Simulated assay, not measured.
Amino acid sequence: MTSEAPDPLLLGQRVVAILETGLRTATYKLATLMALIEHCIENLPENPDDPLRVPLPELAHRVLRTYWRQVRPFDGHELRQSTQPRARILIATNELRDAAGRAGSVEIACLRAPTAYQKAIEDITLCLAQQPLHRLQKLPGADGSDPFLYDDGFLHDHVSRSTLRAHGDAIELRPGVAAGLARLAGLLKPALEIMWVEDVRRMNKFLDAEVPDVAGHLFGRERAALSAVREPFKDAFGPHCFYCAAHLPTNNPIDHVLPWSVVGIDGLSNLVLACARCNGDKSGALPAVGLVDRALRRDRIVLEEIASALQWPTQHERVVAAARGIYRGQPAGVPTWSGYRRRERLDVSFPSW
């Protein structure tokens, strides 16, 4: 293995080849890859050819966040996500949900039940090390893994907590891998979601072709839950569309400034009031940098007051980190959404974040 940074397209092809070869017995590999991509976006190295250290507890937190919505009953059933009798990550997720009173997010659960949260992170960290992380780079039938993403030589089915601690409770992505995964996020994440839905349908026999919107249950955002921020935002910032300043009706949309399909951040710093016209036109498009900059410059004290009243995190620093990673990973001059039926070429020269 050389230290030369990989070509992003080749990297993406290798990732998909690993996943498409052989039968997946759980959704854990998909969850791990999605968490890795998310971590790369939010922690992109200054030099794109550099390696990136990934703390396993942070990876576990991202995996926990992904399954948080998915463990809710769907059509009266608990969805299986593994062919094994004990799905350790789902068990850990459900135990925390019970301890935290079915909190709306992992961040709120962490505040309500810190001891249970820490146990869930420890359980998921060990499961990731013993299962998907040391199998993620191995083709079926191969004698060993091909560590093109990270060194997995110390990982195996029975790796202990002491061994993980001896390795700093972390893996290190190879040079250039973080930048490659971040740049491919817009292509890889939808592909992983499609595989995930296929796997869940295969593992749950009641999910035939007539059962609708499995994808929405697994990966969609809860619009009813987002509506809780509507009136506090109108009181604080006025009943106007963040993008075009149009006066808003009663049930206007709440928009994710950084697209939900790319980073899935529900923190208040990433949410704005929008009219239906702008919300529909923007959809999952990458917004112009100026719009992100304006959203991040809103009064943080006001946002924190709303967050306290709603028990809803602002996640300001996470939004800033994600914005840096998303835009630095884009080719120069790509089109971005700047308003209803308006586009402008990407320019990242001015924001302070």
Rank of each mutant, 00 (worst) to 15 (best):
R230G: 13
A276K: 10
T115V: 11
S162H: 11
R300L: 12
D293P: 00
A276T: 04
W312A: 04
P57T: 03
F148A: 12
C278V: 01
S308A: 14
R69I: 00
L248P: 02
E231S: 13
E107A: 15
L173G: 04
A129K: 03
P259A: 08
N279A: 10
L59T: 12
A224H: 11
A179L: 01
D152A: 15
L30P: 02
P73L: 05
G290Q: 14
R300M: 12
G186P: 01
M34R: 12
E198N: 13
I91R: 14
A246Q: 14
C127D: 13
L56K: 08
C275E: 09
P249V: 06
D347I: 02
P313A: 04
P313Q: 05
P331H: 12
F74H: 13
S145T: 15
P132S: 05
R297N: 14
G339D: 09
L56F: 08
A321M: 04
C275A: 07
V16P: 01
G144T: 14
L248V: 02
V54K: 10
A87I: 00
N279H: 15
R300I: 07
E78S: 11
T21Y: 04
I265Q: 09
F237K: 10
R62N: 13
R53Y: 05
G104C: 00
A309Y: 03
L10Y: 02
R80E: 15
R342E: 13
I194K: 14
L164H: 09
E95N: 14
R165M: 11
L56I: 12
L19H: 05
S162A: 13
L36C: 01
L133Y: 05
W312L: 04
D199M: 08
A323K: 07
D208E: 11
D255E: 12
E78G: 03
G176H: 06
H156L: 06
P287A: 10
L164K: 03
G168A: 07
L173Y: 04
G144I: 10
V200F: 07
A129F: 01
R328F: 05
L30H: 02
Q13D: 14
R300V: 09
S283T: 03
V272N: 02
R62P: 06
M195P: 00
P132L: 07
G186F: 03
I108Y: 06
S162F: 01
R165N: 15
W68V: 06
L10E: 15
R221C: 00
S3R: 11
A113C: 01
T125W: 06
K282M: 10
E210F: 03
I37K: 06
Y28I: 00
L23W: 04
